[in-house]
């Protein structure tokens, strides 16, 4: 690993707008930070807050949630539900001692590849500034639980 901290961010995208924005960013060869790994869902309304918890507890340093712009949801209005959950979730995470800057909601239409790329790069820098989340003992020292299993794996 290099000295600078490279955060890992899990991004949730919706099938109709933001995933296509990511596709468009690719087609247009817009460059952005490689720290984000995207998951495709049908709609941002599908976002179960436990997914975010899972990602953060599993070693992600931040979670990006994306969807269609308000009023442009493929499923009419489900992104509003995502918005509501996001606001609640942010509050919950703050109560758990997690910086609110670790989760971010971005609306990106299928035409906004550049915007999505910019938002990703911006978020990576923001999370980099926050440092590793280090939830459940995941950190850069690779303190791995179940050490025995890893050694078994290496042997395999």
């Amino acid at each position: 690993m290099s000295e600078t901290f490279e955060p890992v961010i899990i991004g949730f995208t919706c099938n109709w707008c933001s995933y296509r924005a990511a596709d468009l960013a690719g087609t247009a060869r817009v460059k952005y930070a490689p720290n984000v790994r995207l998951i495709r869902m049908m709609c941002s309304g599908r976002l179960d807050p436990t997914f975010v918890m899972k990602a953060l507890s599993g070693g992600a340093d931040g979670v990006l949630i994306t969807g269609c712009h308000p009023g442009e949801c493929h499923y009419i209005e489900q992104n509003y539900k995502a918005l509501r959950r996001f606001i609640l979730l942010k509050r919950t995470l703050t109560q758990m001692g997690i910086e609110p800057g670790r989760i971010k909601l971005v609306w990106a239409s299928a035409a906004e590849g550049v915007k999505l790329a910019e938002e990703i790069s911006k978020m990576v820098e923001e999370v980099r500034a926050l440092g590793p989340l280090n939830w459940n003992g995941h950190d850069q020292t690779f303190e791995v639980f179940e050490t025995s299993k890893v050694s078994e794996l290496e042997a395999a």
Binding site: I10, I39, D48
Partner: peptide, 22 residues
Amino acid sequence: NEQIMSQIEGLLLLNLNGAREK
């Protein structure tokens, strides 16, 4: 839920026992 949860694990390489960056 299973599909997405597992994908999260996979993306974070938790399936390889949490040794994500290593």
